[in-house]
Structures are given as structure tokens and as C-alpha cells.
Design a protein around this nucleic acid. Structure first.
Lengths: 118, 118
DNA sequence: CGGTTAATTAACGATGTGGTTCACAATAGC
DNA sequence: GCTATTGTGAACCACATCGTTAATTAACCG
């Protein structure tokens, strides 16, 4: 019961992380945050959207656990949280062997390697 | 011009891939496909949804380039395509060093390593 | 041929998304 | 204290999503 609740939390977290990353503006914000903390305004600046829209994006990132916010006076300083990114990467890494095999097979098909000497 | 169009295609592809992965049913389908080809019906079977709903999910995966479909008579056989997964993984791997550093810093904070002998 | 099976398409509804504008709260600074 | 700055919240719009059911297409099979 507790286990299944925990499982659900993990699944929903993954949902939220992938959904957060499915928007190019938010991916750009994450990239920006990788180089250091930024306020909501600074995150919004490079994008042709209103501050209110940017605020919503930040909230999506926050809900996904990708961003942590610290309020300093009237400035909201955002910091990138590494763990959900690591979790998402882990999830994809599950397929690594699979797509290595598949891509190797593809390459082998395109340019077959020389036969071993019999 | 051509370059920017190409860039847009890549960005939209990433959008589509992350969006496709943001749904737990679709992630489960992808996992299933990692163990071999499956028809739409077989992909639908484990999930408590109609075949029509599953068909839509498959279409989303297809649009993201994650799945390739081969029609054999009335059966639509789906195969996992590795490249978009590799692309998404690459995108996340950009942050790998970042979150390694951050997690190391966190761990160091929680349990400081012994001081070097002075 | 007729019936069954596999899958898509269409139409609908509830809900979510991404954007806007405007009003508001709270802090900073003169 | 007044004003400008920073950010959120609410209301709204157009559109996408995820599910349903019902109708339709296409292929297999007895």
C-alpha cells in the first residue's frame, strides 16, 4: 500500500519531468539554470513572452522538482535541482543497450563488416 | 534558412519525444516494445483502455519517431526506433556533469569527508 | 458469401496547456 | 511616504490531450 503510493509518486514525478521538458522554452530555461541561479525575470528575458507566462513555466518546472525557488525580498531566485534530471536520464538509460544494438545492426546492414577468416 | 528549418525540426522532434514519454501508458508501451515487436492490440492489452485510445497512443509514439509501424494484412506491427531515444538521452546527458557535481556537493554537505592531513 | 477480428476514424466531453491582459501584493529605493 | 520594480493570481481564449462510444474499413477464415 505504502509501496504502491510511493510507486505512484515516482511515476507522477516522471510524468511531470518529461512533460516539463516537452516545451522548448522550459528546456531553454533549464539550460540557462545549468550555468547558475537566475531570477524569474532573468529566466523570462530571453523569451518573447510575458512575465506572467514565464512565471507559469517556472511553476511547471518547480512542480516537476526540476527547480527550487528561494524568495529573497521581491526577487525569486531559481536553482536547478539535479535529482529529477538524473532520474529521467536513468529511465532513458534503460534503453541504452537496446539502441546500441539496434544502431549497430543498422550500421552493419548499411556497411557489412569484413567476414572473419574461416 | 535551411539550417534554421532543420533546427526547428530537431526542436520539434525533442518536443514530441519528451511529450510522448510524459504519459505512463506510453512509457509502458515503449518498455514492452524494447523486448520485441508488438501489434497495436498486444500493446493495448495490458492497459485498461479501449483499443481506440491505444491506437492514439501508438500514433503519438509514431509522430515522435519512437515507433515504426509495418502493416501486415490487418495487423499493424510496431517496432521501437532507437534514434529519438538516443537523441533525448544525449540532451539529458548535457547535464550529467552538472548533477554529478551538485550531488557530490550535497553528499559532501551531509557527510563531510575527513580533512586532509595538514 | 458471411461473420469475425484488427485497427482507424469521427464525434463528443472533460480537462489541461500556453498565451494574453489586468489587477494586486510586496519589496526596494529615493 | 511615494513610486518603480518584481512577481503572482485571476479571468479569459484557442487549442491540444486523453478518454469514451459508435461507425467504418480491411483482411482473414470457414
Amino acid at each position: 500500500m505504502i509501496l504502491s503510493r510511493t510507486f505512484n509518486r515516482v511515476v507522477e514525478q516522471l510524468d511531470a519531468v518529461f512533460h516539463a521538458l516537452s516545451d522548448p522554452t522550459r528546456r531553454a530555461m533549464v539550460r540557462t539554470l545549468a550555468s547558475g541561479e537566475q531570477t524569474v525575470g532573468e529566466l523570462a528575458a530571453p523569451h518573447p513572452i510575458s512575465l506572467a507566462a514565464a512565471s507559469k513555466h517556472v511553476k511547471v518546472l518547480e512542480r516537476a522538482g526540476l527547480v527550487h525557488r528561494t524568495v529573497h525580498g521581491r526577487r525569486h531566485v531559481c536553482r536547478l535541482e539535479p535529482r529529477p534530471l538524473a532520474a529521467a536520464t536513468d529511465h532513458l538509460r534503460f534503453y541504452e543497450r537496446f539502441w546500441n544494438d539496434r544502431l549497430d545492426a543498422l550500421e552493419a546492414f548499411v556497411s557489412p563488416p569484413p567476414e572473419e577468416s574461416p
